[in-house]
């Protein structure tokens, strides 16, 4: 019984969650560990690793010169226009112009982006990758996304010939204002 009481106390002790240890436990917290880097002071809900870059590259600039950024670690920011509805494993970040979009992709289970991030503002960091797509791949991707989002397949916009992904390591999400 003594063993059991010790176990119960240990559980109770662990249950006293210190959200300062992990900002994602306390989404309303804007306080990120300041020792990491000045860039980590971006206010909002933090997901994954703290941001390390202090300057953002605009999605528009990145998409205009993808070959230059391919393979580089970048920080971008913008409106979240889509989120993976089933696993929260990606989100799309819009550029300044219609049609501009960057896919922020994270490893399943490592970071989970909430569906409620859609329509909010993200500051995200990761490695930029340009992925060429065949017509079949592009169609399959679109069908998969439609199924994932529980929506009909979008037939109004042309199929992409490539996608630009940010292999995401961390993000901060906040309201637009």
């Amino acid at each position: 019984m003594l063993t059991l009481i010790s176990l119960a106390l240990l559980l109770a002790g662990c249950g006293e969650t210190d959200s300062s240890l992990n900002p994602s436990l306390n989404p309303s917290s804007s306080a990120l560990p300041s020792a990491v880097a000045p860039a980590a002071a971006v206010p909002g809900e933090a997901y994954g690793e703290p941001l390390t870059l202090s300057e953002s590259t605009s999605v528009t600039a990145l998409l205009a010169d993808i070959d230059r950024y391919d393979g580089q670690k970048v920080r971008v920011e913008g409106l979240v226009t889509e989120v993976c509805a089933k696993r929260g494993c990606w989100m799309s970040i819009a550029g300044d112009q219609p049609g501009q979009e960057l896919r922020f992709k994270v490893e399943d289970g490592v970071i989970t982006i909430p569906l409620a991030a859609k329509g909010r503002y993200a500051v995200a960091e990761g490695t930029c990758r340009k992925v060429e797509l065949s017509a079949e791949d592009a169609l399959a991707m679109r069908q998969h996304e439609a199924e994932e989002q529980g929506k009909p397949v979008d037939t109004t916009t042309p199929l992409p010939t490539f996608v630009v992904k940010l292999e995401g390591t961390g993000a901060v999400i906040r309201d637009r204002s």
């Binding site: 226009t81 989120v83 219609p98 329509g119 979008d154």
Partner: peptide
């Protein structure tokens, strides 16, 4: 809201 493309306009609502 966001003009995703010339053929798609979105208004974002609560919870996604």
């Amino acid at each position: 809201r966001h003009l995703v493309s010339a053929t798609q306009f979105k208004v974002f609502l609560d919870e996604g």
